[in-house]
């Protein structure tokens, strides 16, 4: 299948998700369950996407573990997203030379 078709579907679905509530719904959702569900969804999605995929992200389990460990510690201390992301990458890079 053409990559362009995939991209078109991606773009359309993503835009619809953004545009429908902005243009159609003017009041907040009442259902407490639905509100809670929508509140937890981003965390659950990111978690499922990250684990275990992060361990395969660098082509070597050891460098990935080093990066993950650094990211976990820095994230735990609430450092900015970019700092955590780049430090994880740096740790994986440095580990590459130790292996």
């Amino acid at each position: 299948m053409s990559v362009a078709v995939y991209i078109a579907v991606m773009a359309l679905v993503t835009y619809l998700i953004r545009v429908v509530p902005m243009t159609c719904l003017r009041r907040p959702i009442r259902s407490r369950f639905l509100r809670s569900f929508l509140y937890y969804i981003p965390y659950a999605v990111l978690s499922a996407m990250t684990i275990p995929a992060i361990f395969y992200s660098t082509g070597s389990l050891l460098t990935a573990c080093a990066g993950t460990a650094v990211a976990l510690v820095l994230a735990f201390f609430d450092l900015p997203l970019i700092v955590v992301a780049l430090a994880a990458s740096l740790a994986a890079y440095l580990m590459h030379f130790l292996v």
Binding site: T50, T58, A71, L72, V84
Partner: peptide, 13 residues
């Protein structure tokens, strides 16, 4: 290779 972890690092953050 090392850059491959950047996005996941951000997700953890």
């Amino acid at each position: 290779d090392a850059m491959g972890i950047v996005l996941y690092g951000m997700f953890l953050a």
